[in-house]
Design a protein around this nucleic acid. Structure first.
Lengths: 172, 172, 172, 172
DNA sequence: TATGAATGAGTGTTCATTCAT
DNA sequence: AATGAATGAACACTCATTCAT
């Protein structure tokens, strides 16, 4: 039974990620249940509140970002993350706080650590100026992701925009 | 009575701007009416649809931005707009499209023209590289505004982040 | 000023007849005002209540029926009235009492008198059996009008249905 | 819980039939819920739209008519149905199309078949002329029901009116 | 533990009616 | 007398959440 429950939890998370990515955080919990192939009660058993569900998604997405950060350079990570932004609509949306107030100190902290490592490497490699600090890097990452997401930028605009940011990081 | 109606229209817009800034676009039209000191029917007489109200707010805010663009340099305008972002939460939020689908080609077009002029001036003055084009400037403006808004950045972080962007624009 | 008011009253009645015929009694008073080229307040000055307006229309339509009754035989009047039913949707609808409770003893009385005269003539001419009384004639008239109206009968079905009724009146 | 749901569905239908019969199709869904002893959400769970509820009532009533048609002669069925009309106000009202646009081809088709059988029998028995066809029989049935319903006819007037119709059917 | 029916507060919107101009 | 802006009760419908089965 534990196994089934675990499987259901995962299914619900997957469904929720897809549904919220498609319709925004205003999508109904019923729709999530439908997509997960589960009754509405089951969703609420696993996540007593809609917000709990959103928080859980966020945690997964942030963990995914941390994983992505391993094995890339800072600029590659930036580019990759921005490109994914539209696909992972929810993450950015939720970080952006669409109605829901979410605090995820741990998950965010881990991401900051990961990006911090990339920053240090980039500075050691001389591609980012020493005066740059982590907060503005995180700020720029979040900003450009949101811009890319909501603006519907094409690849070309993404590239041009990131070029400006990278130039700015390289030397300011 | 035209005068009173005009006054009410303005009051409703002010109230709506405040309410939507505080609670997001999901705030109820009733709350707007309450804050405007007006019956719900009056809101719907002036704006037959909640979306009409949101569009009207957007138009005002974009017009305000256009006005702000006159008489500033590009970087000053950038800085000022980002600083205002949190105060004018709605504008960015709506541009970001939280649920509501809004097309404002005219108003957006005017803003682009205004920023385009600033860009040309900045390039003439040699503070922005000639390779920079308007689309990425708009993209960066929107991005950083959203970042500043949702991330709750303090003045210091705003400044550091913009410093990177300005350096990037200056030379990339 | 009296003249203008009278003109407005007539315009409102005309508009109301058209609007209610087109959209049913659920049409809004605003729509009537719009079609009459008059402000909503003017409608309510002339007819303090929507029901008052409906009653006024009914009176006009019944008076029209009385006029139609002059110079026709009973069967011709029947046929003509049924054919008009769809065009004069409201009359039948209101007689049918769609929500609104209306008592129009005088107007209905006059119509009954007129039809009574036709009945007497028809019996004198031997085309309607002597055993037939006015109440069932009125009942059949109202019934078939409603049927024709709501059923969307074509001319052919109208004719066949009336043929049965006329045969029944001729000899029962 | 399927059982409880079924019970609720039935209760809602009963309540709706009563409420719409009493107040017309303009009665509020809330009133139906109240009379059914159920929360408003339950009504909408079973009938996602007010129109769905009206359609469901219609289907039930038409099915009832079909059932009534079994085991009666045409005239008896006519008489019985007209007498019931006032009690089953809604059916006629809805067939009459008060505002709501409803298509019930199947249910109506079944009723036509049933009445068609009665007609054939009546013609075989020689009480209805061979020249009479089903469409005008249906038309007369609907018409007289509406007349009886909205005119508030007493038993006596019903009988006299139907006598004319039956005479007309017998020989025209 | 899963189900899905039930709840009911809340939302956007309409419209008859009132009333200040 | 006419205008049309304002009112506010009412409505159809949604959805997060609870709970009986």
């Amino acid at each position: 039974m534990r196994v089934d429950a675990q499987r259901n939890r995962a299914r619900i998370l997957d469904a929720a990620e897809a549904v919220f990515a498609e319709f925004g955080a205003r999508a109904s919990t019923e729709e999530v249940a439908r997509r997960a192939g589960v009754a509405i009660g089951t969703v609420f058993r696993h996540f007593p509140t809609k917000d709990d569900l959103l928080v859980a998604i966020m945690k997964r997405l942030l963990a995914q970002l941390v994983e992505d950060a391993e094995g890339h350079g800072l600029f590659a990570f930036f580019t990759h993350t921005v490109a994914q932004a539209a696909a992972k609509k929810t993450a950015v949306d939720l970080l952006a706080g669409s109605g829901v107030d979410i605090r995820l100190p741990d998950a965010v902290g881990h991401l900051e650590e990961a990006v911090g490592r990339l920053l240090t490497q980039a500075q050691a490699a001389g591609v980012v100026a020493d005066s740059v600090r982590l907060p503005e890097v995180m700020a720029l990452l979040a900003s450009v992701c949101q811009g890319a997401l909501h603006g519907g930028w094409d690849k070309h605009l993404q590239a041009r925009t990131l070029a400006v940011v990278f130039a700015g990081l390289n030397r300011d």
